[in-house]
């Protein structure tokens, strides 16, 4: 399918091939020089989505989406089913390509031109809706695999963990509260512990942005509280984007809330502002 899409792109006559479009020279803004390939957050935002559209078989999953996430922010995104929350994450992480619009990481990195592993290496980590960890590996090995190192084939073949990296893993183990379980097979963890492990696997990559999809689905109340603490602790060092259904949970962590509806931003602001917005109420409760 991908090759077919590529072919179609070549066949299009209304635009120049992507690789022939002249790269814009780095823009000068005041005395600050923007370098290519470097995450530049001098203007505040770390993620920009502008005029993004995606359609699946005619269904517009994302419709003229404009969204900016500031560096170090903890942002919650809510919306009814089918609002395009997961599709939005797919676009940011390179799993889905937008039909139009631009997606930038910092001021310079065009995410629509990068592949999944490049985006991950650039510093965007993603947690899936269902906890996805490596079940046959121990908790420690899960973190070791996620650790920020040279992730090409040959270096992996001769990889040896050094003391510094070991300390880093221990540090993250402590943060997610799984130090005692570090030699267990990940498959043996409880549901909540798997979610934390997955968050730990994101954190250990030292990403700039963490995309967290429904972190407390299926958790007990205590586990959810613990997760809230974890996420709040992460904000500041990282930008955290949380997609969640649970309003109570959002209220407990949210600074800014964005409401998505039919692939478009419906409202944005503090939890109280959003909850009292008549448009939001009508979307959630019906006319």
């Amino acid at each position: 399918m991908k090759a077919l899409d590529g072919l179609r792109q070549v066949m299009r006559r209304d635009r120049v091939f992507d690789f022939m479009i002249e790269k814009q020279p780095p823009a000068m803004s005041g005395t600050h020089v923007v370098k290519e390939g470097e995450i530049d957050v001098s203007h505040g935002p770390i993620l920009y989505l502008e005029g993004v559209n995606v359609a699946f078989d005619g269904f517009k999953a994302i419709n003229d989406l404009n969204l900016t996430i500031n560096d170090g922010e903890l942002r919650c995104i809510i919306g009814p089913n089918g609002a395009g929350k997961t599709t939005m994450m797919d676009i940011i992480t390179g799993k889905t390509r937008p039909d139009s619009g631009s997606v930038y990481f910092g001021q310079t990195m065009d995410l629509t031109q990068m592949s999944e592993y490049e985006i991950a290496a650039a510093g965007i980590g993603r947690k899936f809706q269902k906890p996805t960890i490596f079940p046959e590996h121990s908790v420690f090995q899960n973190l070791e695999l996620a650790l920020q190192t040279d992730k090409r084939v040959w270096p992996s073949l001769f990889f040896k963990l050094n003391g510094e990296q070991r300390d880093r893993i221990d540090e993250v183990l402590e943060m997610i509260g799984l130090t005692a379980e570090c030699h267990l097979r990940a498959a043996q963890l409880s549901h909540g512990q798997k979610q934390w492990l997955e968050i730990g696997m994101l954190v250990i990559q030292s990403p700039r942005v963490l995309l967290v999809d429904e972190p407390i689905a299926g958790m007990t109340h205590q586990e959810a509280e613990r997760t809230a603490e974890l996420l709040i602790g992460l904000a500041g060092k990282h930008s955290v984007v949380v997609v969640e259904h649970d309003m109570e949970f959002i209220r407990s962590i949210a600074q800014t809330v964005t409401v998505l509806h039919e692939g478009h931003v419906l409202a944005e602001g503090t939890m109280d502002m959003v909850q009292n917005d008549p448009r939001v109420i009508s979307v959630y409760l019906g006319e």
Partner: peptide
């Protein structure tokens, strides 16, 4: 890891 969770491996940064 690829055998057990291919997508996760990709998003952890492996080609």
């Amino acid at each position: 890891a690829i055998r057990d969770a291919e997508d996760r491996t990709r998003f952890v940064g492996y080609k």
